[in-house]
Design a binder for these strands. Structure first.
Lengths: 341, 341
DNA sequence: CTGTTAGCGCTTTCAT
DNA sequence: ATGAAAGCGCTAACAG
């Protein structure tokens, strides 16, 4: 049978010193002589005391070394998204290095209240599906940072989505092209569909809006007009949703010869559908993606896309949170012109 | 300026009732009349008290609603592995449903001690790289469950890896074939290499051993012998490591005509190398994978592999942990015979 | 450098 | 059905 865990008090008693001394030995080396400290630590080890109880420390110190990563969507969805998991990679690197722990928090949760009291801070990756969470984050007082969207008053990490979209579209679109856009989370619908005149959701600063603006600016400069029935809404960057949209585009008449996709996953799905249907890429169909995921380099033809470093985004977000930086960060991006143009 | 958070005591004072009553209103509805409770909750809402402080609850109740998922490797590596992230998907579904939170814990961390005091339990997904963690898990007293490996005395979730490997090899290998094996974590080396006579690492029950046993049993039944210089060690299921091994195999003389791979990632990398080098699959080279990841169905030719449901594995592991089940679970698998055989 | 002590905010008997 | 009081295990002033 396992014995009950020793408490700091027990140990103090056993070693015949005060609790403060034990506590100091573990937490504040400067408060006692090195020799004494060594001695105490050794004794503790011998009797099987592994250090102050963390639950008590959290209450007392008001710090847990846990950082909550608030996702836009469910955890289930997020971990299988290559862009998001690359971001997590960056975050986790920094956290591990700093001895912090990572709590994954679903963006469709009811509330943030059940962790706000013990977590050290929040990294919000994308606007949470449940809008209430964003509000709660503002109202509470722990440090927080947003990535790929903004909350008033909080520092953020972003790329210039409008400019990036503009530049890739600028490469893709020629005067006289028939252009369609496969957009992400543009309107309030759980299904893939054309946008038509549905009101666009999210704030003006949502990445999808910014990308859309960029696409449209580039097109308009080339004298290409895009009606809203040539803009699709895809509820999330998921292969199945993307495939539906891809099929709709390819079966539209007249079929567009250029499709601007708001994620690589969408673009790859479109590419695969197009090839399956016997189209030549880019002769019959030019395609651009967005993100620069690894898989987009491996396909034949490989994708033209906007590369952003999600690992770096994660590292910067985590670092900024831990340093309590209040500045907004704008990361650079890079066009990758592949064989789909 | 944000005011200091209200405490339960403040609220009791303000409402003119005892702290116990407030506490009960939030935690134990049966301890007071529904009307009184409603009233109290409403008042709390009005004055902006969102409920008992969680840090204090953790200390007092000894429960946090946080489950630690102890990974085999770093978080960074794990989230980008399709098999692992599918497993996380399953775990997170169940946890979210039960109002539990997910703490990701790297298997190469120094120790588990800094969370053991507040976490409600551990799901260990694969033998942690740092062996010490497994020991610590046994020694502590919170519920724990292992997946894809075993720790003495803890319940586990597994498939029959030996049998699965046997069956897929049995489909792949014909008498007279020249067979190579691309193995995962077989010996103690951080680099891809042939096994030769290096001692195999891990317990006999490690999944890699079991799979190796299965492969060898099938081969030996067909009268096919595999020398240890036709068995490769790959340190983790990573595309780059896999590619090295793939190249070595393909450039070996005489080139094997059948390669049994211990993961789909490895198999896909081999497949791509083979096609790039102009080989015909399966005429020149038969390939089998292991896991049944989505990408393996999408490739042309698609992969012959062993499908196991990682989502289900995650769901079952999480459920078993929360229910404190002590039984071992053996999940089924399914052969998928694709175009690489 | 070490010990005493007052909480961190809450839950839960135990009386009432 | 409610209230008073004793801790959960620890840390940080402060006094010595």
């Amino acid at each position: 049978m396992k014995k009950d865990k020793l408490t700091l008090k027990d140990v103090a008693l056993r070693l015949g010193v005060s609790t403060a001394t034990i506590s100091n030995a573990f937490n504040r080396p400067d408060q006692l002589s090195a020799a004494r400290r060594e001695d105490i630590l050794a004794q503790c080890e011998k009797i099987g005391y592994t250090g102050p109880n963390k639950a008590a420390q959290i209450l007392r110190k008001g710090r847990s070394n846990i950082v909550a990563l608030v996702l836009a969507d469910s955890i289930a969805y997020t971990v299988s998204d290559p862009v998001a998991s690359t971001f997590i990679k960056g975050v986790s690197k920094v956290l591990q290095q700093q001895g912090k722990h990572l709590l994954l928090y679903a963006g469709d949760s009811a509330s943030i209240l059940d962790v706000v009291d013990f977590v050290d801070g929040f990294i919000c990756y994308g606007a949470p599906k449940n809008h209430k969470l964003a509000q709660e984050i503002v109202q509470q007082s722990k440090p927080a940072i947003t990535v790929d969207f903004n909350i008033e008053g909080l520092p953020s990490v972003n790329i210039d989505n409008e400019q990036a979209a503009y530049e890739i579209a600028n490469q893709a679109v020629k005067g006289g092209d028939h252009v369609a856009i496969l957009g992400l989370r543009l309107i309030d619908s759980p299904t893939t569909c054309r946008v038509y005149d549905s009101p666009l959701i999210g704030s003006d600063s949502s990445i999808s809006h910014r990308r859309l603006d960029g696409y449209l600016r580039a097109c308009s400069e080339k004298g290409v007009n895009i009606d809203s029935d040539w803009i699709w809404h895809i509820p999330e960057s998921d292969r199945n949703f993307a495939k539906q949209a891809a099929k709709e585009v390819l079966h539209s008449h007249p079929r567009p010869n250029t499709v601007l996709c708001m994620s690589d996953i969408i673009a790859l799905e479109l590419l695969q559908c197009a090839l399956t249907e016997g189209l030549e890429v880019p002769q019959d169909l030019k395609i651009t993606g967005f993100d620069g995921i690894e898989e987009a380099e491996r396909t034949r033809p490989n994708l033209s896309t906007v590369c952003q470093s999600s690992v770096q985004k994660g590292e910067i977000a985590a670092t900024a949170l831990l340093d309590a930086t209040q500045d907004d960060t704008l990361l650079s991006f890079e066009l990758k012109l592949g064989e789909t143009l």
